[in-house]
Design a protein around this nucleic acid. Structure first.
Lengths: 204, 204, 204, 204
DNA sequence: ATGTAATCGAGACGGTACGTCAGGTCTTACC
DNA sequence: GGTAAGACCTGACGTACCGTCTCGATTACAT
């Protein structure tokens, strides 16, 4: 996986990129986010701080790259079954946000990247769009099969899915379990019209 | 509004609480979250740092109290119209997360409070439960009117609403407009069964 | 003993003067000079800080009064024996500076009082002049007995005595023992002329 | 002059050592000891506080190094004249303790270093032993010339000299003038036997 | 015996400096 | 020439005391 947040030549990266990103994940897992300082990563990676700063503009960018490597954004296989495919998509999302390291870092990551539009857009690219595109493909298959309304708002579907899962994971202590997964899946498969532009013509 | 995050006597608070919370909001609006340091707030409030530290355990607690005062958690009026009431609820949520200061601070707030379960639970209490209870009341009215399924999962409804709105606001650059509000409202009013425990095919 | 450093009415002093000075000495003995804060003394004495500040202008003044009560400045008895009397004087000085609390506090006391001429002069009065006068009386008896030169510089004698003892105690780790006492005594009794204005007429 | 109190590599020191020590002396001279804070020195030196803390464990160590550079501990030239050499030694001591900065700082320095035996011993090494050794050499020359008793207690001589001078300077307002210098010198040259172990009556 | 004033305890307050820490930049060797 | 090491400046952190202050409660004296 390329280094989305590294500021080096589009191709490159430090010789010790792997060592550094591994060290970042190690520190994160072992000592938690508050202990995840550049100095700690440099020390754990046996690397000078400057090597890190040469390639990543700040801590958040480094962490983003470190997490990107464990963030699942794989394609949804064509199972012939719309419900199964969408359930697969929801499960993948839940997996991502259930990962201890990712969940612990996401708010801080967001907080750190928000003031930097350039980094924020790379963040979206890395963590959202790639996965979304894969899920959108599955949704489009469902539309073609006639299982979902032809004008389904795929963005809205994904915002609802990811939003709900992330919110549950961070803001409440409710577990993100299979019941939730099934609920979110059926919300679309059995009520796709709710996600179409004009939800319905019921005139009140 | 009481000081949920102050560590003082349940009633009390510093004599200069108002000055301090005002200053916190001022700094936040004027200079953004990264500049929102305790020292800056103390200076802006014309107060000693120790006065702040005497009453709030850390920066996040202070900010949480400052934001709590502009966070809307009002009751949903009984309008006799379920759709209108729920739309009101969604609008209130959107308003909260559209507020510049709240949106800019929420991720950092979450990041700062997550490692402190005690504070995190006060955060939930302050920012979520009170508003949720008000919305739940409106949902229950809808159930009693027969507009919503009797076994509606009010928590799920709210997680979907708040999750989607927050996610849109922070993670995408899609605006949180009235179309979204209407969508989210109709998702429930026209498809309440999707939010009932067994999202079966019981078409009401 | 009056309160030399209290700023109250010449007579008075706080009702709890004894409690406070005792507490100061207790804290000093138990926790050492660095822990000897006004707040610690107030707490140990069960007294409000303001009560202390009402009567003593600062920490050093308080400590000075506390130590003055254990500082020996008694009269030298007329023993009929000049050497014995002077030895008594030297022993008294050594006793004072050997006292753990006094030795630990003197430098800090000096450091704190030096910039306040008014307090410094009270310090001299309390800790030096009263004792010096007693010793000077003994020296004068020695002069009258013919054991010491008629023009003995009693101030110089005392500066040498106190200076040497204090210096040894603070700046070196050499003990201030009876050998030193005897040395300092004989320096005067056997060589009084060295302390007379014109040390001698040796023309080279 | 090496940095006796710096905790760095025995040789080294911060790149900006000179800037820092100069700034310390400047602040001391210009604003007096109470204003001599680490923050003030850092600001005056255009240096970060951490740079100072990296090399000196506390304020006293820094000041000790700053003063060490103006503390005279030079060798006493062999003048062939014992009295002249000793007078030179006494004058050097008086010079040191007459220096405004040194006198203002010594008590505070002692107060600050006393609780730290390690620093206190470096203090002795820096401010006392080096000078004492030079003076001891002069005293030994006097012994060899037969001008002073063969068993002269050189330590006692120096304690008397330094003690008396320091005491006069700090505790009394008597000036430390040439009369005192001459007195202290003659106390030894004309009465050396008073400083020999058994201060007997051997009148030489 | 009661009212008035001084004194007291408690501790909040605005400050200053502390010593620590991490961020991000820069310099110096080394390989 | 990239890199490891780490010195450096910066600036916020959270703590400890300072000396001032306000607040009732408790004296103690004078009526």
């Amino acid at each position: 996986m390329a280094l989305a947040f590294s500021s080096g030549p589009p191709d490159g990266g430090p010789r010790s990129a792997a060592k550094i990103l591994d060290a970042a994940r190690d520190v994160l897992s072992a000592q938690g986010y508050p202990a995840l300082t550049i100095e700690a990563v440099a020390a754990a990676a046996g690397v000078g701080k400057s090597t890190i700063y040469r390639w990543w503009p700040n801590k958040e960018a480094l962490i983003a790259d470190a997490l990107a490597e464990i963030f699942r954004a794989e394609e949804i296989p064509d199972l012939g079954d719309t419900h199964a495919e969408l359930r697969h998509a929801v499960d993948m999302t839940i997996d991502n946000y259930t990962n201890e390291d990712i969940a612990a870092s996401l708010p801080a990551l967001a907080a750190g990247l928000l003031p930097h539009p350039e980094l924020m857009s790379r963040f979206r690219e890395t963590f959202l769009h790639r996965k979304r595109e894969n899920i959108a493909a599955a949704l489009r298959r469902g539309v073609q099969r006639g299982d979902l309304p032809h004008d389904l708002d795929t963005d809205l579907v994904q915002d609802v899915w990811a939003g709900t899962i992330l919110y549950r994971r961070l803001m409440t202590d409710t577990p993100t379990d299979t019941a939730l997964a099934e609920h979110l899946t059926r919300l679309v498969t059995e009520n796709g019209s709710g996600f179409a532009p004009r939800a319905s013509r019921t005139p009140t």
